[in-house]
Amino acid sequence: MGDIFTPGNIIVCLVVAVGLIVGVRRAVAGLVRGQSCCTDGEKRGHTRTRTPVVSDTDESHYPYAIDLPIGGMSCEGCAANVAAALNGIEGTWATVDLDERTAHVRSKRPIDEAACEAAVRAAGYYVVKL
């Protein structure tokens, strides 16, 4: 059998070890600083959206409703970004369930799914086509 401690194997092991060390250090540093995966969201194409205030949260005032499956979310910050983007559509009240990866959209008028999809896309996420 050949010797496993060849110069090529040693170099590969060193490269892998350095990669692991760098990755672990970045993960620990992010946790220590309290960063979520979206702290640097703008670099990943996610846009932080100012959260519009939805003053009317009486469900009976919203006769139209749809659920949109959302892709690209990985934390509560992502869910808040998607909700804010959808709440920016006039007459719309949206909540997002991160566990289900679903936006619950309610509207006072018929829902324009294309406008909802555009708002989600503008925030850096996407509506999953089923």
Rank of each mutant, 00 (worst) to 15 (best):
T95C: 12
G91M: 06
E117P: 08
E113T: 07
A122D: 14
A85P: 02
A122G: 14
R121I: 13
A115D: 07
G91R: 15
D112K: 09
D112M: 09
R101T: 07
E90K: 13
A122Q: 10
A103I: 03
V96G: 02
D97Q: 07
E117C: 12
I89L: 07
A122C: 11
E113F: 09
C116V: 02
H104N: 14
A94Y: 00
K108I: 03
D112V: 09
T92Q: 11
I89Q: 08
N87S: 01
L98W: 04
E90M: 12
A118T: 13
E90S: 15
T95Y: 12
E117W: 12
P110N: 10
A84M: 03
S107G: 06
A114F: 10
K108A: 05
C116S: 04
V120I: 11
I89H: 04
A114G: 05
H104W: 11
A83P: 02
D112E: 15
A85H: 05
T95L: 08
T92F: 13
R101G: 12
A85G: 08
I111G: 01
T95E: 14
N87C: 00
S107Q: 06
T102Y: 04
W93C: 02
A115Y: 05
G91W: 02
A114S: 09
A119N: 02
C116Y: 00
W93Y: 14
P110V: 06
A84K: 03
P110C: 13
R121F: 07
N87P: 00
V96D: 00
R106G: 10
D112F: 06
A114Q: 15
I89S: 02
A122H: 05
I111W: 01
L86G: 00
W93H: 04
C116R: 01
A114K: 13
N87I: 00
R106S: 11
D112Y: 11
E100I: 12
E113M: 10
A119R: 06
E90T: 05
A85K: 09
A122K: 15
G91E: 11
E90N: 10
D97W: 10
A119H: 01
E100S: 15
R109F: 08
A103E: 02
D112P: 03
R121P: 03
W93A: 01
A84E: 05
A85M: 13
V120C: 04
D99I: 14
T95V: 11
R106E: 06
E100P: 04
D99P: 08
A84P: 01
E117F: 11
A85W: 03
R109W: 10
R101I: 08
E117Y: 04
I111C: 04
L86Q: 00
A85L: 08
T92R: 10
A115C: 09
S107C: 12
A103L: 09
T102R: 15
A119M: 11
W93E: 01
H104A: 13
A119V: 03
A119E: 00
A83C: 10
P110R: 09
K108D: 05
S107N: 13
L98H: 03
A85F: 03
